[in-house]
C-alpha cells in the first residue's frame, strides 16, 4: 500500500479505535430521541435494556429490551456513525413489550432504549457496551 496522506489519516483513526476510547455520542442521536419524545421528560424506570458489558465483536451484539405497557421502544447506538438501530412498535396481539435482536456497534459506546408508554409518558435506559478489538484480525 502506498502511504498517501489519506491512508495515514485512516490508520490514525484506526489506532484511535484500537485503544478502545469510547465513541462520543452524536448530536444526531439526541435529536432522534427528541423527535421520538417530543422533548418530554423521561423516567429512568419502567424499561429494561439488556446488553453484554463486553461484546466480543461489534458486528453482532445481542440486546434485549422490555418495557411493560409500552406502545413503542426506540433503540439507539449513541456512538455509531448513524445512531438509529430499530424502533419496535407493539400491536394489539403483542404478548409482551419485549424484543431481542442483534446489532452493530462501531466501538465502545452507550446503547440507549426509550419507551413510549400507552399513557403518553416516556422512559429511558442506557447501557455502556465495551467493544473489544480482537488480536487476530478482529
Amino acid at each position: 500500500m502506498q502511504l498517501s496522506r489519506r491512508n495515514v489519516m485512516i490508520m490514525g483513526a484506526g489506532a484511535f479505535v484500537a485503544f478502545g476510547l469510547p465513541m462520543r455520542a452524536s448530536a444526531a442521536a439526541e435529536d432522534k430521541i427528541a423527535e421520538f419524545t417530543g422533548g418530554a421528560a423521561m423516567a429512568d424506570t419502567g424499561i429494561t435494556l439488556t446488553a453484554p458489558e463486553i461484546a466480543e465483536n461489534g458486528n453482532t451484539v445481542p440486546i434485549e429490551v422490555s418495557a411493560p405497557g409500552a406502545e413503542a421502544i426506540l433503540v439507539l447506538a449513541m456512538g455509531n456513525p448513524t445512531p438509529g438501530v430499530a424502533q419496535f412498535n407493539f400491536g394489539p396481539l403483542a404478548g409482551s413489550q419485549f424484543a431481542s435482536t442483534r446489532i452493530r456497534l462501531a466501538g465502545t459506546q452507550d446503547v440507549v432504549a426509550v419507551a413510549k408508554m400507552k399513557d403518553g409518558t416516556f422512559a429511558r435506559a442506557s447501557r455502556n457496551v465495551k467493544v473489544t478489538i480482537g488480536g487476530c484480525g478482529g
Binding site: 448513524t82 438509529g84 438501530v85 435482536t101 452493530r104
Partner: peptide
Amino acid sequence: EFNGQTVVDVTMEPAISTNPYFEFEAI
C-alpha cells in the same frame, strides 16, 4: 401479524446485524 392484527412492526436501521434476528412474544 396474526389473522390480520399486528403483533410487532419494526423499523430497521443499518445497525441491525447481517442475517437479522428477532425474538418477541405474541398472544
